[in-house]
Design a protein around this nucleic acid. Sequence first.
DNA 1: ATTCTTGTTGCATC
DNA 2: AGATGCAACAAGAA
Length: 270
Amino acid sequence: MPELAEVEYFRKRWDPGLGRRVTEVRLPRATRPTRGLTAAKLHAALEGRRLRASFAAAKQMAFRFEGGIWLGIHLGMTGRTECVGAEGTPPHEALSLLMSGGRRLVFADPRQFGRVRLWMGPGEPDWWSAIAPAVLSDAFTEEAVAEFLRRRARSPIKAVLLMQERFPGVGNWMADEVLWRAGFHPRAKAGAFGPVSVRRLHATLREVCADALRVIGKDWSDPPDGWLFNHRWEDGGVCPRTRAPLRRAEVGGRTACWSPARQRLGAERR
DNA sequence: ATTCTTGTTGCATC
DNA sequence: AGATGCAACAAGAA
């Protein structure tokens, strides 16, 4: 589930821990997301440290503690964060931090595709600074998109939009939403996008990222009914703009949903 | 019981 | 060398 805006939402769920000290680290079982980390290692690094700041970028979160300690969390497919009382033990807990003041910051991940990282030192960890420039940043230019599409010329555009090295934070639903709003078929070849189509794609990417952060990133409000988001999973779903039936099929190894009435192959020419 | 899944990685192949 | 496609990871939900 967690893409750009959901990650921003989950980042904020640990806000009650800001300024608080870590008093205890709990790793209930050796789960995949924590890999080689142990409770002892985490405790040695974090005990007594105050949580100073948190960041979200792409599909990752970083929590910075006193002393240059960084805790990185990738939510994978089913990860989530929450803040509970000291006694709480949510199901599928992979890691939690008991904080001064008596609250517990929890990372839970039933399907265990998430990832927890620990880093200490001056500056930023590599896994943080290596994240590609945000879609909403000045560095995300039309030329960068055009160049990337040229290199992936034979791949379907849907698959290309899922590549984090250029479209950080875009996941399955956001890619479908972008293509639907912009009127491009998910199977259109990336190489077929000329300057006019690239411009349209670039603008729509920015629009969807901004909308998602405003609605879902803020407080997980329900997206407006006019978004594809609300219709893409229901069987017999209907395009909110044309009222024509939506189609679903696998594209680039993932389920894609589109509106045949307004997303035709060939529209990406020029 | 079977099939589905909003992510990423590593490997085989082109 | 770089691009492309796909299985694998794991477990809950429908």
